[in-house]
Structures are given as structure tokens and as C-alpha cells.
Design a protein around this nucleic acid. Structure first.
Length: 434
DNA sequence: TCTGGGGTCCTAGGACCC
DNA sequence: TCTGGGGTCCTAGGACCC
């Protein structure tokens, strides 16, 4: 096995490039099944925050025709009819299970890129080509055995093709859950079987345009276009996508950079009208956002606050506003941020609308050790120490052990989570009993 | 009655610099 | 090989992803 440094791997072509995309099958539903074996062959659906939409479905639920993202209240009957287990989302569990899957996958290549909570790219360039499929099957099998989570793998020379291979693998339930696109006799036939909207990077708008303007209906149709011309008509993103479909790598592993924008927002469990209630929610979101900010060693130059009513209520006009506060010196201090957020809220709050959601966004993010200081401001070394203690205590004793008074203690608008499973792997009190 | 949350990248266009 | 306004910074908005 020979392996090139990830930054240079796209320049050196000693070996044909081989990228594997590993994707957990029905991830959230699968996590729930790990600790409830009785649910193994039952339909399982997982809901978004506030028990709003369907965000994960077991195969049985998919087979019943219940679409991804559908509002729960609209498909409750169908779910009941098939005897589905319907659960509130349990992010502590999913986050921990994800870490286990990633730890396992990392054993099989020196170059892995975590792409989302349930997906990772494994660079297998330079591995022995004639045994790659077997190697993939081993990875899939081991991951299932070590974590309880079933996964699928697509292998190809580019990311777009690997993604496509993974999709075909799941759809056709390929043996061993590995589909190596470089091993098929008729690649074009495979591409012709994939609808244009199922190509990674082609969303709702683009697929509609491609279908209507260019009669492009499948991945094959798109592959057969002129990439340069399509760049002129669309964008460089489209050009790259086409080149990747043609087998020319354009997308490479990216280093994990600190976030440039941090968002914390939630819909309310029930509508909110008063400024006090809004401010409590915004204080909570601000505290959470600042925690994330500090955890990546950053400071932010501005905070933006947003409030809105429900966009789905036909009876009442949609109301949505946002405002931001700039800081002379970028900061990660929760109390300064809450103060800034409070000022912003005062500007935009209007009495009357029934608010459905509030949130904050931190912008102009920089590394804390690189900031331009304010010449006239008093330095406040106490802030860093205080935030350090705050984070350390909450880390050790659990979320919100220490919190700001403005966050309040009783939240009638708390999000709905009517059917959540225990935090089997992250809380001593929830540990499974045998 | 009930519709998630958190991100990224790209483009266009304006203001401004030399 | 041909030729030549070039360039930065900022914001808003659109599109995509999971």
C-alpha cells in the first residue's frame, strides 16, 4: 500500500484515484434500533425538533411511501396504519453513535474526511485495485459488527461518482453493500438509471431548469454536455460537477476550518408574543452559540438576532425581522453578547405577532489570538477566566449547570419532544439495563 | 392545532483604490 | 501566439448539502 499526503494526492497520479463514500443506512432510525432489537424489523421514523417533520425513515417506512421531510401531522395516519414506531430526535445518541462509526472507519485508511453526521469519504487511492471491493466489504461488515450501524459504500474516481455509486448501492441493495463504479462494464447505463435530481449538487431549482431548458433528465445526459458551455450558462459549480461525472476529479479533501458563521436557533413548542419570553430564548441561543464559538478558539465581531412568525399560517401575515449589533472589539464573552443581542431585539420587536421561531447568528468570526484590539478600551482579563470556568463546569456537570439569569428558568415555549428514547450511551442514568 | 436546524459556496454589483 | 484597466472589499441573495 502506498499513500500520498492528502494535500498533494490530487496532483500525484501514480495510482488511479479511488474515493469511497461510506453512508450510514437510515442513520437516526438505525441508531434507535441498536438499543431496541425488537424494533429491528418494525417501521421506525424519527422526527425533527419539536416533533415537526419526518427526518429519518427505516426501509419499511420508505416502502410505505412516506416522504422525507413530510410534516408529521400530515402523515400520522399512514404511520399509525403500518404500526410505525415514531420517535423524537435524540441527538446525544446520534452524535455519540456517529463518533463510534467514524472511529471505526478511520482504522481502514490514513485519509478520511468526515462529511456529515452519517457520511465519510475514505481515500483508497494506491490500495490494491483488484481487492478493493473485498476491502470495502470488510469495512462495511466490521462497521456493522463494531457499532451496530449498517452502512453502504460507493467507490469511484471522483466524489460525485462515488456519491452516485453509493446511491445505486442502497437503491439496488447491492451484495455486500459495496458498489465499485470502476468495476462495471457499462458505466453509461448506470448513469442513465439515475434521475437528474438525484445527482449530488443538483437540487430542486437546477433540476427543473435542466429538464425544461436542455432536456437533461439523467446523470448520463448531464455527463454528455459541454462542461465549458455549461459553466457559461450556469456557474463554475456546474462545470465542476460535470467534469466529476466525466471522471475528472475537481473536488478534494478539505481541511477542517473553524466555522465562519455560527447559528443557534429553535422553533418554539408553542407561540410566543412577549419581548421577555423572546429575550429568554435569545439569551439561551446566544449562550449556546458563544459556547461553540469558544470551543473553536474564536471571537465574533457581530451578533445578529432574528425573530419570525410561522410561514405556514395563511390566516396571519408572515412577520420576520432581523437586526445585528457590532462590537468594537470582537468577543466571545456571553454576557457582552447577550447585551448586544438584547439591543438588537429592542430594535425589531413588535407587539402583536405570534412568534414561532427565534435565533442568533454570530458573524465576522476570527481567531481569538489574531484580533485587533480597541486602543481605548480597558482590557478585561477576567472575562476569559470567567468563560473558562463556565465552560469547564458545564462540560463536567452537564449542559446549563451554570447559566445566565436572562435565560430564565421556566420555559413554556420549550420544544416538543414527546417520544424520546433514553441517552443510552452518554448518560449514566440512561444506561441500558440487561 | 401541529411544518427542523446548521452550514457552505458562488455570483452580481457597488464603492473604492491606483 | 494573440491582447489588455486591474484589483480589493463588502453585501445581498440564491443555490446547494445533510
Amino acid at each position: 500500500m502506498s499513500y500520498e499526503n492528502s494535500k498533494e494526492s490530487h496532483i500525484i497520479y501514480d495510482h488511479p484515484r479511488r474515493i469511497a463514500l461510506v453512508d450510514c443506512n437510515n442513520f437516526y432510525a438505525s441508531c434507535e434500533r441498536v438499543f431496541k432489537p425488537a424494533w429491528q424489523h418494525k417501521p421506525v421514523a424519527v422526527l425533527s425538533n419539536n416533533d415537526g417533520c419526518i427526518i429519518a425513515r427505516s426501509n419499511e417506512v420508505k416502502a410505505a411511501g412516506i416522504p422525507m421531510g413530510a410534516p408529521y401531522f400530515k402523515c400520522k395516519k399512514e404511520l399509525d396504519a403500518i404500526g410505525a414506531i415514531v420517535l423524537s430526535s435524540n441527538y446525544s445518541l446520534y452524535g455519540d453513535m456517529s463518533a463510534r462509526v467514524m472511529d471505526t472507519l478511520a482504522q481502514y485508511t490514513p485519509d478520511m474526511e468526515i462529511y456529515s453526521i452519517d457520511e465519510a469519504w475514505l481515500d483508497l487511492t494506491g490500495f490494491k485495485l483488484d481487492t478493493l471491493t473485498d476491502y470495502g466489504r470488510q469495512i462495511v461488515k466490521d462497521t456493522h459488527r463494531f457499532t451496530g450501524i449498517p452502512v453502504s459504500m460507493g467507490i469511484a474516481p471522483t466524489k460525485v461518482l462515488a456519491k452516485l455509486a453509493n446511491r445505486v448501492c442502497k437503491k439496488q441493495n447491492i451484495k455486500g453493500q459495496v458498489f465499485d463504479l470502476t468495476q462495471v462494464d457499462d458505466l453509461d447505463a448506470v448513469l442513465a438509471s439515475v434521475d437528474i435530481e438525484d445527482v449530488w449538487g443538483i437540487g430542486r431549482k437546477l433540476s427543473q431548469k435542466l429538464r425544461e431548458k436542455h432536456q437533461i433528465k439523467t446523470a448520463l445526459d448531464l455527463k454528455n454536455t459541454d462542461a465549458n458551455q455549461m459553466r457559461r450558462l450556469y456557474s463554475v459549480v456546474m462545470q465542476r460537477l460535470i467534469l466529476e461525472l466525466q471522471g475528472h476529479p475537481c473536488l478534494f479533501a478539505e481541511d477542517v476550518e473553524p466555522k465562519k458563521q455560527i447559528i443557534a436557533s429553535r422553533s418554539f413548542g408553542e407561540r410566543v408574543t412577549s419581548q421577555d419570553d423572546l429575550m429568554q430564548a435569545i439569551s439561551m441561543h446566544t449562550a449556546r452559540a458563544c459556547e461553540k464559538l469558544r470551543s473553536q478558539g474564536s471571537v465574533a465581531g457581530s451578533i445578529s438576532v432574528s425573530i419570525r412568525t410561522s410561514p405556514f399560517q395563511a390566516r396571519e401575515p408572515f412577520f420576520s425581522r432581523h437586526a445585528s449589533t457590532q462590537f468594537v472589539t470582537p468577543t466571545a464573552d456571553t454576557s457582552l453578547m447577550i447585551k448586544g443581542a438584547s439591543e438588537a431585539l429592542k430594535h425589531i420587536y413588535k407587539k402583536g405577532p405570534k412568534y414561532a421561531k427565534a435565533g442568533v447568528m454570530l458573524n465576522d468570526i476570527q481567531q481569538a489570538n489574531e484580533i485587533q484590539q480597541d486602543f481605548f478600551a480597558e482590557p478585561s482579563p477576567k472575562s476569559d477566566a470567567l468563560m473558562g470556568v463556565l465552560d469547564a463546569v458545564n462540560q463536567r456537570y452537564g449542559k446549563n449547570t451554570l447559566f445566565y439569569g436572562s435565560q430564565g428558568v421556566q420555559h413554556k415555549w420549550q420544544m416538543k419532544r414527546n417520544n424520546m428514547t433514553p441517552r443510552f450511551t452518554t448518560s449514566w442514568s440512561d444506561i441500558p439495563k440487561v
